[in-house]
Amino acid sequence: MNHHLESVLRYLDEHHLKLVTAESCTAGLTASTLAEIPGCGSTLECAFVTYSATAKISVLGVKPETIERYNLTSEEVAREMAEGALRISRANVGLADTGLAGPSSGDSNIPVGTVCFAWSFEHDGDVKTFSETRKFNGDRNEVRQASADYMISRIWHYHNEVLKENS
């Protein structure tokens, strides 16, 4: 993983990308994973852990209606988390996740291991957001680590989409 992380950080550096994370089910693990690499301070701006619905609303500005309509585990909520984190930080890339790491799904019918992600980029004054939903297998902490790794591994893919649109 380390070699892969180093190449991600090099990519972020080369493109002058500063990250903010808005993490729910990973609870800071994405920022922590990035921090394993010395020198990550040049690319990691800050990290928000917003576990509860209340925190998502009051800290990141997620709309209560979005949560009511789509559920906490939804791409719509992940997108508002990523965009909210961008708004309140000096970063130009916002990463967000919200999902069910387990052990149970509470009273929802969403399967355990389901995680919704969003990647939000500020580019030339515009914000472009991408999102996807994935299902990971394993126990609670395996799901959390797989989610953090996945979120980091997709940054360059979506950043390239932004660059393509703007070229």
Results as ranks from 00 to 15, higher is better:
Asn2Cys: 02
Ser74Cys: 02
Met1Gly: 09
Ala101Thr: 08
Thr98Glu: 00
Arg10His: 08
Asp124Val: 02
Thr133Arg: 15
Ser131Leu: 09
Arg10Gly: 01
Asn160Pro: 01
Val115His: 05
Pro38Thr: 06
Arg90Ser: 12
Met1Gln: 06
Phe136Arg: 14
Arg87Thr: 01
Ala82Cys: 11
Glu142Pro: 04
Glu122Val: 05
Glu142Tyr: 02
Val20Ser: 05
Lys18Arg: 12
Lys128Val: 15
His123Asn: 08
Lys128Cys: 10
Gly106Cys: 04
Lys164Gln: 14
Phe117Asn: 12
Glu142Leu: 01
Ile67Ser: 05
Glu75Val: 14
Val162Arg: 03
Leu95Asn: 05
Gly113His: 01
Leu60Thr: 01
Glu75Asp: 08
Met81Ile: 09
Val112Gln: 03
Arg140Ile: 08
Glu161Phe: 10
Arg134His: 11
Ala47Met: 02
Glu142Asn: 12
Ala35Arg: 06
Asn137Val: 13
Ile152Gln: 08
Thr26Met: 02
Val62Trp: 10
Glu76Lys: 13
Pro64Thr: 03
Ser167Lys: 12
Val162Lys: 05
Cys40Val: 13
Thr21Ala: 12
Ser42Asp: 15
Ala22Lys: 00
Asp107Arg: 01
Trp119Glu: 12
His4Thr: 03
Lys135Gly: 07
Cys25Ser: 03
Cys40Met: 01
Ile155His: 06
Leu72Cys: 15
Gly61Asn: 12
Ile110His: 13
Lys128Glu: 15
Asn137Met: 04
Val8Asp: 00
Asn166Trp: 14
Cys40Ile: 05
Leu12Ala: 12
Thr129Val: 15
Tyr158Gly: 00
Ala47Tyr: 03
Arg10Val: 07
Thr26Gly: 07
Glu6Ala: 13
Leu60Arg: 08
Ala82Arg: 13
Asp124Ser: 12
Ile88Asp: 07
His16Asp: 14
Gly113Pro: 11
Tyr11Phe: 15
Leu100Asp: 05
Gly94Met: 06
Cys46Asn: 07
Gly28Phe: 04
Ala148Phe: 12
Tyr158Pro: 03
Asn141Thr: 12
Ala35Val: 06
Tyr51Leu: 08
Asn160Leu: 11
Leu95Val: 01
Ala78Pro: 00
Glu45Cys: 14
Gly84Ser: 04
Leu44His: 09
Arg69Glu: 13
Gly41Cys: 10
Leu19His: 04
Asp139Phe: 01
His157Lys: 10
Thr114Ser: 07
Glu122His: 10
Glu80Met: 07
